[in-house]
Computed example of a mutant assay.
Amino acid sequence: MRSKTTVNGCSLVDDPEDETVAVVDQMPTRAVLDSLIESGLHEIKRERSGLLLSGLSAGLDIGFGPLLMAVILTLSPGGFGDLTTELLLASAYSVGFVFVILGRSELFTEHTTLAVIPVLDGQASLPQLARLWGLVYVGNIVGGALFTLLAVILMPGLGVVSPAAFETIALKLVTHELHWLFVAGLFAGWLMGLLAWLITAAQGTFGRVALIWIVTATIGLLHLPHSIAGNVEVLFGLFMSAVITPLDYFTFLVLATAGNACGGAIFVAVLKYGHVVRGAK
């Protein structure tokens, strides 16, 4: 006869051999918040070199998403505006995020939420937050730039991606009004912050992969500017096309980063922390 036990607020169903076979309840919101605070504090207290290297790894790994997008755009008979191609591109875009998040590398847009929550809870300071953000962000940007250089040198020779594909992807992000870049970046940061919350609440690797795909493919399908993945996308265009200028790149990076940070910090960290803490009173 199966028995039901509770661990950390979650109900588990056990078989007669005491092997857990199902999780039937969700993790309570207070447990999610506590886990996020613990994770945020762990990252805040990490050594500088560890954060930089982890951020560098994330910047390198996330580049596989934009690279696969360029390959699909090269090989597909359709293009932007074709539903099948758009869905394929959005799915390819999510691949880099799967590599980074499941690989537990440091991604700036995750920490715009994770690291803010311990500050709101009074367990970390603003200078500590700024240190974490700065180290992870620099590592992400440098890693993305290194990946782009390698891809630009190696990929065209393999015959699976064309320079025109890199240009097309970059133009999707830089041919917009400045206010659009910030507001759309805010939505991308909001979604990434929500993903950090959902990943913590999720049970099992399959559920986490599904969540990563749903959220990041949404960002890709809407062509929202994600500062770290977009760093690679726009750099591809800068290196491979005369149409994309250094000003386009720096303008994109500044506004997308500001929007991502505000979206993750305000719409997820502040609001969700507030509703959980007030709900517990």
Rank of each mutant, 00 (worst) to 15 (best):
R2T: 10
R2P: 12
G9H: 07
V21N: 08
A22E: 15
A22H: 10
D25H: 12
R30A: 14
D34V: 00
S35R: 13
S39W: 00
S39Q: 06
G40V: 12
E43R: 13
K45F: 06
G50T: 10
S57Y: 04
G63D: 00
G65A: 04
M69D: 11
L73Y: 04
L73I: 01
L73E: 05
T74W: 12
G81V: 08
L83E: 09
L87E: 04
F99E: 04
S105K: 12
L107S: 00
H111L: 10
Q123G: 02
G134N: 12
G143I: 01
L149C: 10
A151Q: 03
M155Q: 08
P156M: 06
V161T: 05
A165C: 09
E167H: 05
T168L: 13
K172P: 06
L178D: 13
W190D: 07
I199A: 11
A201K: 15
A201F: 05
Q203T: 15
A210D: 03
I212R: 06
I214N: 05
V215N: 10
L224G: 03
I228R: 00
L238E: 01
L247E: 14
D248H: 15
T251P: 01
A258H: 01
G259D: 10
C262W: 15
G264P: 03
I266F: 15
L271D: 09
K272F: 15
V277N: 02
R278S: 15
